[in-house]
Computed example of a mutant assay.
Amino acid sequence: MGLPPKATLRPGEFWAVRDCSFELSPGEAIALVGRNGAGKSTLLRLIHGLLKPDAGEVRYAGRAEAIIELGAGFDPVLSGRENIELAAALHRLDRRDAADLVARVIEFSELGDFMDAPVISYSSGMKARLAYSISSNLQPDLLLVDEALAVGDIAFQQKCLSHMKDFVRKGGALVLVSHNAQQIQAVCDRAIYLEHGEAVFDGDVAVAVGKMLKRAPMVSGGPGKQQDGPVRIDSLQLSGPGGRPLMTGEAAEIRMSYTCTEAMDAVCSFSLWTDDQSVCIGSAMDQTPRRLEAGSGVMNATLTSHPLLMGHYQICLSLLHTGSLLPIATFGNPGRGASFEIASDGDRISNLKYWGRQLIRLDVEWH
């Protein structure tokens, strides 16, 4: 109605991207990382001009090509070949350059006879092949890629990664949005980590990927169902020496607090689990019965060295009868155990192992 825009947000509104500034030079690849809804795709759309910013500006020299939404820009009724010719016409290529583009895209996409089938019959992976092949072979100065390779097969993903690295090496600029730690670290040396639309980190890609891989905050554990008896486990925690964050390969301290109504002997046993308690990583049992005095007390144990990689885990503990080894008190079994976290080493290899759902580190001597 001709009124100036309001500076304040209306109820229910939020900033999708705000105060995010960066520069990208030719021959540089940058990754936009963060959780779903952090603003990565919105920022990519702003760069490409599909969305107009409320404040600030986006400037780049040269021509940009984007693979933002799978199948966007395709006419589903036309064949793959006809869609390539349509892209050539939209980019004002002459007949010779258009024919050359068609040949390059057919060769790169490896779609073969499917090129003359309508795009509406393509699978998601085939659409990804066609989209990346067209955008990359139009020889842009800036290439914007948003999760386009997630649906492709491994062989084509590797082919695209090799092309991206070669594209950057030849002076192109690349902005990549992905949750794949391997892809990001293979192509980019720099990354921006977004949270709620704001850039909270801009720097080394391994550090940014480590932030991305951290999951939602852990739910604190509590005692499992305990039988009525003379002893109750009140709390359980596992931490690094002196309360420091746990790191792979270091010692870990287990501290258990209990309350006894009468003095008794018991055997202690604990187990380490994945955060969803779907996999038991390992367990240990004390071979010596321990005396529990009446009242409140504390029992400690030390893991001299643990092989757990970066991630979130749980520890469950039981006090067992010295004769029958039946549980007389439990913490987290059944039910949630005490949550603990192994901190990131902050390097690329640790990120790749975490992304690959690996749990432990193997100490190997290579010959």
Rank of each mutant, 00 (worst) to 15 (best):
1 M>D: 09
4 P>F: 10
5 P>S: 12
12 G>Q: 07
13 E>Q: 15
14 F>D: 01
15 W>P: 10
18 R>E: 14
22 F>G: 06
25 S>C: 07
25 S>Q: 15
26 P>G: 09
28 E>N: 09
29 A>I: 09
31 A>C: 14
32 L>Q: 09
35 R>N: 12
38 A>W: 06
44 L>S: 13
47 I>D: 03
63 R>W: 01
64 A>V: 06
67 I>L: 15
71 G>L: 02
73 G>N: 04
74 F>K: 01
77 V>P: 00
80 G>A: 03
82 E>C: 04
85 E>R: 14
90 L>I: 14
97 D>G: 00
98 A>T: 13
102 V>K: 02
104 R>G: 00
108 F>A: 05
110 E>R: 09
112 G>Q: 01
118 P>D: 03
121 S>I: 02
122 Y>P: 05
124 S>T: 08
126 M>Q: 10
127 K>N: 03
129 R>Y: 01
137 N>A: 02
138 L>F: 07
139 Q>H: 12
140 P>I: 02
142 L>K: 03
142 L>Q: 03
145 V>G: 03
148 A>P: 00
151 V>P: 01
158 Q>Y: 09
160 C>N: 02
167 F>W: 04
167 F>N: 02
167 F>I: 08
167 F>M: 09
168 V>D: 05
170 K>V: 00
175 V>K: 03
185 Q>H: 01
189 D>C: 12
190 R>D: 08
195 E>S: 13
197 G>W: 03
202 D>R: 02
207 V>Y: 04
209 V>M: 15
211 K>L: 15
213 L>I: 06
214 K>D: 12
215 R>Q: 13
216 A>H: 05
218 M>K: 09
220 S>F: 03
222 G>V: 02
223 P>R: 07
226 Q>Y: 03
228 D>F: 02
229 G>F: 05
232 R>G: 00
232 R>S: 10
233 I>D: 04
235 S>Q: 08
237 Q>C: 13
239 S>I: 01
243 G>N: 02
244 R>Q: 13
251 A>M: 13
256 M>A: 14
275 D>Y: 13
281 I>Y: 03
282 G>Q: 08
290 R>C: 08
292 L>Y: 15
296 S>G: 11
301 A>L: 13
303 L>M: 14
304 T>Q: 11
307 P>L: 10
307 P>K: 04
312 H>L: 11
319 L>V: 06
319 L>W: 04
323 G>T: 10
333 N>W: 08
336 R>I: 09
337 G>P: 11
343 A>G: 07
348 R>N: 05
351 N>S: 12
351 N>D: 15
354 Y>T: 15
356 G>W: 00
360 I>F: 07
362 L>G: 04
362 L>C: 04
365 E>S: 11
367 H>C: 06
